[in-house]
Design a protein around this nucleic acid. Structure first.
Length: 882
RNA sequence: GGACGAGUAGCUCAGUUGGUUAGAGCGCCGCCUUUACACGGCGGAUGUCCGGGGUUCGAAUCCCUGCUCGUUCACCA
């Protein structure tokens, strides 16, 4: 029969690239057809680097989703794109320059930006290549970049609109300052880490020489910016002293002692120094008391203006030591005690964040957050898993204004122009040529750029053409789902909902699936510094893209992080290998007279059983998809294909496949081909390349699996009775196999088995009809059914529900061993029976449990008692022998 | 300090509304190179479902409590 050959070894590298090219050449990733679209905008990777395993996971999961819905027939679109990643990308270029001994200022803004574009191009090329390698079915014609012309327009439009709505303002505030990147960053870009610091106790003398106030601080160097000392108004220790002046050492200023209820009486000495320009709390307190703000830092974090000359240019660390030394000399230093506290670090550069006074642009977030909360309350968005709702809500409730200006060159320059003559502000889409106020023609654009997230938060609609009313926007917005890691809820997900609600009046997507995080085998976060990351491309090279995707799907449960080393991908690779080999086997048995159409197939018990199992698998995948339960999808197809289809169904057909009669061979082979074809469609979202490669070899195949219909569960293929009957057959076979294994009977040796079935056992006739199958599976050509005969002496007895089987292995029976095992089985059986009996004799159970549960227990009891009877008879017989 | 999550087989973890004699993958043990697959087949062993209470006819599953880990948010100098 052998007609079609597949290479003996599964080698994904042989066909993956070719197939991806084929898919692209035929434009199969473009949305097609009518109906409700299914749309996902890719979380745009940063053009700073290359893809890491987080992308591997995330894009594998999206691809499975996209391919499934595409096969389901919905117009399906997955929009590709990348993010310019302001600080990160600028840093890459600055690091390059540093190696060349230059700074960005040596190049100048425009040359620097040009150079950054080149870095962008290079990384972009790699990233898009990588996404193709892992098989991501993105519609590349629609690819976008956060700084392409269309998105620039969207960004400007949003800035101008927010400004006009009074939601953007400029102001001089204390912001988080990254002294390394020398830019402001938002609150969300600050990561607090616990650091072992020191609490310094120091004294400030009263100006009139009447003693001193002792206070505690972790940052003595900020003394140079102090403008007051505060205590709690009801603090007895300081009553009567409020309002007196203190002489600030070193800085030689006089500062007042104030009362403010914010101060905690129980911390330190109950007195706190106030540095409004360098501490958020002090900033607030300074405003309440109308205090001066004295900035003492340069943009690079060294001490700068407003400090004594000997402190100029010192780093905070050095200045701190110097201050402590000077205070000691002055006799004002009391003590230094170890103190753990939280210190903010910049997410990107890792440097310690300085609260820093500067003029920045902010977005007023409360009104936006309210709309975004409304979207959740009205079920316009749904989180999977649901518990992330509270993360979202909590953040929205505590929202603070968003500092959006960055002192960088790489990014969207702020669309604000100031008139050189009169200082009038113009917030416009395009550069104005004359001042609307004084008609002067010289205007200067704000030098700063916008936070990267100010373009990312528009992603679901800006990529579809907004603010233009494009066909894509009309048809594909709002999108359906966003798939991303949970650590990005604040930065991206929440803000996208805000932007969607504010600018389009709609939530930008309905479903929010939070992926797990990939960690290393020890559960640590993968990071460059630890060197424990896994390169998804290496996984593709070693195991194939299908192995990558299948493993990721199989291991992604609801919200549980995945611990994995590279060997973990063997899971997917072994499964793909299994699919390969089973398919190879079936392909070499394609009937030479051609595959029979489904309506000419005659179905036996095993056929009905596998059909029913397939139906169940399809339903399980369908419901798992709706709930984003990836691991369920993976387990379902794995178990269906491997356990049901390969281990039982294919094995069951061998009898037919090797039959003397060509018609029987053709029947069996045809059924197998149809089932294989349907299985390939079932598995295509999870094993895209291998299923396509095999599908392309099937007789009568269509253009591609990518656009083939996903299998549908047909009620007329449900056969619960066939499933139960086949289950009984499987149990019987397992029993015989166990005996074979336990008695170490050579698999090649034919044994004699006699099966005695209870007359009224529901599956009695099924078992009899499938004698040949039982014989085949149990390796017993001579297997027969007893016709009222007695059990032959010395046979091993296998007790099943509704039957017992006698295996004639007189010579090899190890009586003592067999008796021990039997005793164990009997004990277990008795325990079980008594537990069921207890249940059934409990009136409360019988009365309150549902009838079907009670009936189920009754049936179990009857069966178990039958089983026990047979076990005991066997035991009796064995003891006679012994 | 708050919130959330986790604690189930040697390891990594499933276990959806309470009702299975508690499962998977890997690992381990035994047999088998049976004409698709040794990345295989067949069989096997291993669990006070973290501890303690409670609700219920019935709890790995619900409630309370304790312990241990993790994540995240938080202005305490």
């Amino acid at each position: 029969m052998s007609q079609i050959e597949l290479p003996k070894a599964y080698n994904p590298a042989d066909f993956e690239d070719r197939l991806y090219q084929f898919w692209q050449d035929n434009d199969l990733f473009a949305p097609r057809g009518d109906g409700e679209p299914f749309v996902v905008a890719i979380p745009p990777p940063n053009v700073t680097g290359v893809l890491h395993m987080g992308h591997g996971l995330n894009n594998s999961l999206q691809d499975a989703l996209i391919r499934y819905w595409r096969m389901k027939g919905r117009p399906t679109l997955w929009v590709p794109g990348t993010d310019h990643a302001g600080i990160a990308t600028q840093q890459v270029v600055e690091n390059q320059l540093r190696k060349e001994g230059k700074s960005r200022h040596d190049l100048g803004r425009s040359a620097f930006v040009d150079r950054t574009w080149k870095v962008k191009e290079e990384h972009h090329r790699i990233i898009s290549q990588q996404l193709r390698k892992i098989g991501a079915s993105l519609d590349w014609k629609r690819e976008r970049f956060t700084m392409d012309e269309g998105l620039n327009r969207a960004v400007r439009q949003v800035f101008v609109t927010l400004y006009e709505r009074g939601l953007i303002y400029k102001g001089r505030y204390l912001v988080n300052w990254d002294p390394e990147a020398q830019t402001a960053i938002s609150d969300d870009e600050v990561e607090y880490k616990e650091v072992q610091g020191t609490l310094y106790h120091i004294r400030y003398p009263f100006a009139d020489g009447s003693g001193f106030v002792e206070l505690a601080t972790t940052r003595p160097e900020t003394l140079l910016g102090d403008v007051a000392v505060a205590v709690h108004p009801t603090d007895q220790r300081y009553s009567g002293l409020i309002g007196k002046l203190l002489k600030l050492p070193i800085a030689d200023r006089e500062v007042p002692l104030l009362a403010d209820p914010f101060v905690d009486k129980d911390f330190g000495t109950g007195a706190v120094k106030i540095t409004p320009a360098h501490d958020p709390d002090d900033f607030e307190m300074g405003r309440r008391h109308n205090l001066q703000q004295i900035n003492i830092l340069n943009p690079d974090g060294t001490l700068g203006p407003n400090v004594p000359a000997r402190y100029f240019g010192l780093t905070a660390k050095v200045a701190r030591e110097k201050i402590v030394a000077e205070l000691t000399e002055l006799g004002l230093f009391v003590d230094a005690v170890p103190h753990k506290h939280q210190v903010g670090h910049a997410q990107r550069s890792g440097s310690i964040v300085e609260p820093y006074l500067s003029e920045q642009w902010f977005v007023r977030m409360k009104p936006l957050a309210e709309k975004a909360m409304h979207a959740l309350k009205t079920d316009q968005i749904r989180f999977y898993p649901k518990r992330y709702e509270s993360t979202y809500t909590t953040w929205m409730e505590g929202i603070r204004d968003w500092c959006i200006s960055r002192q960088l060159w790489w990014g969207h320059q702020i669309p604000v122009w100031t008139c050189d003559s009169c200082g009038h502000l113009h917030v416009e889409m395009e550069a104005p040529t004359t001042c609307e106020h004084c008609s002067a023609s010289k205007l200067t654009q704000d030098e700063d750029v916008l936070d990267t997230w100010f373009s990312s938060w528009l992603w679901p609609f800006s990529t579809l053409g907004w603010p233009e009313k494009t066909l894509d926007f009309e048809k594909f917005y709002p999108t359906t789902a966003v798939v991303t890691a949970y650590d990005i809820i604040f930065f991206w997900v929440a803000r996208m909902v805000m932007a969607g609600m504010e600018f389009t009046g709609k939530a930008p997507f309905r479903d929010i699936y939070m992926t797990p995080l990939v960690r290393d085998a020890k559960g640590r976060k993968m990071s460059k510094s630890l060197g424990n990351g896994i390169d998804p491309l290496e996984v593709v090279e070693e195991f194939g893209a299908d192995a990558l995707k299948f493993t990721m799907v199989y291991l992604s449960s609801q919200g549980q992080d995945i611990n994995l080393d590279k060997d973990g991908f063997k899971l997917g690779s072994k499964f793909a290998n299994k699919v390969w080999n089973a398919s190879r086997y079936l392909l070499m048995n394609i009937p030479e007279q051609g595959v029979l159409p489904p309506d000419q197939l005659t179905k036996n018990g095993a056929d009905l059983w596998i059909e029913s199992r397939l139906n169940a698998a399809i339903r399980a995948v369908d419901s798992a998809m709706l709930a984003y339960r990836y691991n369920d999808m993976g387990h379902t197809v794995y178990e269906f294909f491997w356990n049901d289809f390969c281990d039982w169904y294919i094995e069951s057909t061998k009898l037919e496949l090797y039959s003397e009669q060509p018609s029987r061979r053709r029947q069996a082979a045809s059924k197998l081909v149809h089932l294989l074809e349907e299985s390939l469609r079932l598995m295509h979202p999870f094993l895209s390349f291998i299923t396509e490669e095999i599908y392309q070899k099937l007789p009568g195949h269509a253009l591609s699996l990518v656009i083939a219909p996903y299998p549908v569960a047909h009620p007329d293929r449900d056969h619960p009775e066939a499933e139960a009957a086949f289950g009984a057959l499987q149990n019987l076979v397992a029993g015989i196999r166990r005996v074979r294994s336990e008695f170490a009977i050579d698999p090649a040796r034919d044994i004699e088995v006699v099966v005695s079935v209870e007359k009224n056992f529901v599956h009695a006739s099924f078992l009899r009809e499938n004698r040949d199958l039982l014989a085949q599976f149990s390796g017993s050509e001579r297997l027969r059914f007893s016709e009222g005969e007695q059990k032959p002496a010395g046979a091993v007895t296998i007790v099943n529900r509704g039957s017992e089987s006698w295996v004639l292995v007189r010579d090899v029976v190890d009586l003592p061993k067999e008796l021990i095992k039997l005793a164990k089985s009997i004990e277990r059986s008795k325990d079980y029976i008594s537990s069921v009996e207890r249940k059934l004799s409990n009136q409360a159970f019988v009365n309150s449990a549902p009838a079907e549960v009670v009936d189920g227990e009754r049936n179990k009891l009857v069966e178990a008692q039958g089983t026990l009877t047979r076990l005991e008879a066997y035991q009796h017989e064995l003891s006679e022998l012994a």
